[in-house]
């Protein structure tokens, strides 16, 4: 009887485990499909004002909040 139950449920256990694993795989992916365009546009905008060396965009998830953190690295010998 016990064996019977164990067997019946293994496919649904698999479904639950997979759903969670895949959700976290996708979330941990750190990217949005638009991330490259976003980078390009931000660099363009900032460059109007100051020299840009690089940019880093991270997707951050904390509990219920999802945020985009953007770091723009500036040229060292900039003249402002």
């Amino acid at each position: 009887m016990f064996d019977f139950w164990k067997k019946r449920r293994s496919a649904s256990v698999a479904k639950d485990r997979l759903s969670i694993a895949i959700m976290s795989d996708r979330g941990g992916n750190q990217t949005y499909p638009f991330i490259n365009n976003l980078k390009k546009e931000i660099v363009e905008v900032v460059r109007k004002y100051v020299g840009v060396r690089g940019i880093e965009i991270k997707k951050e998830i904390d509990g219920n909040f999802e945020a985009i953190s953007i770091d723009v690295f500036l040229e060292k010998d900039r003249h402002i």
């Binding site: 067997k7 019946r8 293994s10 496919a11 649904s12 479904k15 997979l18």
Partner: peptide, 16 residues
């Protein structure tokens, strides 16, 4: 195995 619940059903895989 699908019938006895030991293997994921197609619908479940499609859902995921």
């Amino acid at each position: 195995m699908v019938q006895s619940g030991e293997m994921l059903k197609s619908d479940d895989i499609l859902d995921i």
